[in-house]
Amino acid sequence: MNRSPKLAVQDLHALKSRHAAVFAPSWATRSATIATVAVLAGLFVFGFWRLDFSFTKLVSGIGQLGVLIWLMIPPDPGSWARFVTFLGALAETVAIAFLGTLLAALIAFPIGFVAARNTTVNRIVRFASRRVLDGIRGIDTLIWALLWINVVGLGPFAGVLAIMTADIGTFGKLFSEAIEAADRKPVEGIVSTGGARLHQIRFGVLPQVLPVIAGQVLYFFESNTRSSTIIGIVGAGGIGLHLAEQIRTLEWQAVSFLVIMILITVAVIDAVSVRLRSAIIGRPQRAAA
């Protein structure tokens, strides 16, 4: 700005004297900002030191990474037989995501009503169900996969159960929030016609929350496709098993091929779920208009 001093800049002194309060530095905010930044930066530096970051390590690693990326080109599955195996594993991945999401939604549906303030049975049940959902959500899908492998053995079924369990926690929370956000008026309408508690939920709450819930389930189907690509790493089926194996055996061309397969699948499912979601959420709006 000092390249071309214009009117406002020439007038700066006058402006400053006229609006002293605006230009005066507020030491309280400034010191708070400086303190926050200092703490964040300090933690940052401490982290680098604690986790053994070193310049030479980074540089040599990035060099290595360049070599690996060079080795990945062109993507190549190796043979037709392997390509067919990969396709099968990819289908398994999508199936795991689909079943896991569907089962989680079915199980979380009643839990959502119990955990919502306006439809719950009583306070204690609501509190308990919330804490259980929090606990379930605190454990990552991969950990659930390891636990389920102990129960049903290695294979995609353990993956389905892992996705299901991890999502019950998230769905339960999201559903109960959707239910709590529902409009009271339709429920009051049902009460005024003499509807019982279940009628209130079925005809007052359900029609409002169903589109929201359907949208969330579709969204999670998409994000679960991503999670189910990796649960194979611990042996719970799907394409992750092949991906981990190809990385460990340093078959870089097959690795990049697998990554591209995953990217395409996720993009396709993303497109489909966006379509479906706008169809579901769009419908009641059109009816109202």
């Binding site: 390590k57 980074l58 690693g61 990035i62 990474l65």
Partner: peptide
């Protein structure tokens, strides 16, 4: 997946 690849490099 990034972690698996980075482990080999870093």
């Amino acid at each position: 997946v990034f972690a698996l690849i980075f482990i080999i490099a870093f």
